[in-house]
Every structure is written in structure tokens, then in C-alpha cells.
């Protein structure tokens, strides 16, 4: 049987392998030393595989970055030309409504493409940790206040009331403090409010409120839209998910995915409650830390 020491050595070898600091100890005739060499070889080969994987991933990453970067100028140019075309069409007498419609279609698809590329870039950066989410202790109340204020315009444009309901908010010192990255969380919250605006009927209200928990501060965004099918709830956070019903609305199906990823990185999460034709509630749980 093994001596106690040998077992302990092997345990130590494994431990150091797990945190990646393994190195061979001595080279001698002992079986332990041979084991160490074999172990090293194994680690090396698995490390190699890991490195290859990382490399592939980073190649992919670069590719996406390149695509997004390289498409920027053509996109800008396309936009420019399309605008120019629009202006020229205004001066042309024989332009039909049909022609104008086609142009606006081109513009819309271009907008969409632009948004898609932007989202993909963000997503890839987020996923490959190129952009780090850096949660700091911040006040959720002022954060929400600022975002709802800034999005009033967009809401009004769609004939929707965006309400920050702080009647029940607890304004005491630490009630609304949480650990989050303001920049990225803004992205997430805006995406969700944006979605709500997009999918809500006119004259409806979107209510934003803060619910403090012991471990989390939750931001609830409640709309009076069409709601989500029960079976779909789990899928709405998938990449490129779009409901069949609103395939006509704008969007590329990355917003919720991004929002979920962002909150995950802040040790928080998103939850959805929805009832068909009555509306949905998205709740963002920010970890207090």
C-alpha cells in the first residue's frame, strides 16, 4: 500500500495541477518521479488542447471584430449614398411612391444591419471578456431615475407613458445600494425598456420600480403589452430569439441575451413574469455583494 507521504504528494500534485502551477519536483528512480513526469506530460497535452481552443476562440473574436470594423466604413458610405439618393429623388419629377418605399426599405434594412453589427460586436466582446464588467457599489435609485428620464423622449414618441414608480421605494441609506457596472447595466436596462416600448400598444404605461431584497436590489420593468407565451419564457433570452408574432417589429433578438449576460457577470440575474395579453414584467436582480 501507499505510504501516507506518497498519497499526500499525489494530492499536492493534483492541487497544483488544478490551479496551474504544477512543476516536476526531482528526477530520480522512484515511481513517484516517473508518475510526476507522466502527469506533467498529460497536463502539457491537455494544456496544449486548451491553448488551441483559446486560439480558435480568439481568432473568431478577431474575425468578428474585423467584420464589425471593416463593415463600418461601407455601412457609413451606404448610408451616405442612400441619403444622397433620397435627396436626388426629391428633385426628380418622375419618382413614384413605389420608388420612395423601396428607398425607405433600404434605409430600414441598413439601420437594422448597423444595429446588428453593433450588438454582435458588444456580444462578442462581452463573451470573450475583452470588455470586463466591473461592478462597483452604486445607488440603484439614481441610476434608474437617470435612465427613465433619458428614455422619456423615445417613449413619448411612441405614445407610451414611462413611469418611474418610487412611491414605495425605500429611501434609507443602504436600501438601494448594489454592486453593478453602471455602463453595462444601463445597456441591459435600456434594452429592456426599449423592448417594452417597442412591444407596447399606444397609450399604455410602462412602470419601472425598485424592489429591495436582502441579497439583491431588483429593478422591475412592467408593461401592458401582449405578454409572452408560457412556453416561450425560457427561450426569450436565447441569442437571436424572436417571437413569431412580432417578427415584423424591429430588433435582432440580441438585447435580452445581452442583458442576461451582463447581469450574470454582476452576479445578478433576470427573471420574467408574463401573462398573455396582459403584459410582461422583467425584473433585473442586482447583487448587493
Amino acid at each position: 500500500m501507499f505510504g501516507n507521504k506518497t498519497i499526500e504528494r499525489i494530492e499536492k500534485m493534483l492541487d497544483s495541477a488544478m490551479d496551474g502551477t504544477f512543476s516536476e519536483n526531482d528526477y530520480d528512480e522512484s515511481k513517484l518521479s516517473r508518475l510526476e513526469s507522466k502527469w506533467k506530460r498529460y497536463l502539457h497535452s491537455s494544456q496544449l488542447a486548451k491553448n488551441q481552443l483559446d486560439e480558435t476562440k480568439s481568432n473568431l473574436e478577431t474575425l468578428i471584430a474585423d467584420i464589425s470594423h471593416q463593415t463600418k466604413t461601407p455601412m457609413a458610405n451606404l448610408k451616405l449614398y442612400s441619403e444622397l439618393l433620397g435627396e436626388r429623388m426629391n428633385n426628380m419629377p418622375d419618382v413614384t411612391d413605389e420608388d420612395r418605399k423601396l428607398l425607405s426599405q433600404i434605409n430600414a434594412q441598413m439601420e437594422k444591419m448597423d444595429f446588428l453589427i453593433m450588438s454582435l460586436t458588444k456580444m462578442s466582446r462581452l463573451e470573450s471578456n475583452i470588455i470586463e464588467v466591473k461592478p462597483v457599489n452604486a445607488d440603484v435609485y439614481s441610476f434608474v431615475r437617470e435612465i427613465t428620464d433619458s428614455m422619456q423622449g423615445s417613449a413619448n414618441k411612441n405614445g407610451i407613458t414611462l413611469l418611474f414608480d418610487d412611491k414605495d421605494s425605500d429611501m434609507s441609506d443602504n436600501a438601494n445600494k448594489a454592486l453593478f457596472d453602471t455602463k453595462w447595466t444601463r445597456e441591459a436596462l435600456s434594452n429592456i425598456i426599449d423592448n417594452a416600448i417597442k412591444y407596447s400598444p399606444e397609450k399604455s404605461t410602462i412602470t419601472v420600480s425598485i424592489i429591495p431584497y436582502e441579497m439583491y436590489v431588483a429593478i422591475s420593468v412592467r408593461d401592458e403589452g401582449m405578454g409572452i407565451e408560457e412556453g416561450e419564457v425560457a427561450r426569450i433570452f436565447d441569442r437571436f430569439y424572436r417571437s413569431d408574432e412580432n417578427s415584423d417589429a424591429e430588433g435582432v433578438g440580441l438585447g435580452l441575451y445581452l442583458a442576461r449576460e451582463i447581469l450574470k457577470r454582476e452576479n445578478g440575474y433576470i427573471k420574467v413574469k408574463s401573462q398573455k395579453n396582459k403584459g410582461s414584467e422583467f425584473i433585473l436582480y442586482l447583487w448587493r455583494g
Binding site: 431584497y213 436582502e214 441579497m215 431588483a218 450574470k264 440575474y269 447583487w287
Partner: peptide, 17 residues
Amino acid sequence: SKTSQDVLGLLKTTGQK
């Protein structure tokens, strides 16, 4: 229900983490 939310959240987030 409120505590449940906390616990479930933690179950989920620590599971992720």
C-alpha cells in the same frame, strides 16, 4: 416569497459562478 426570491437567486447565481 421575498426570501424565496433571495434564496433562488443565490442558488442560481452561485450555481453560475
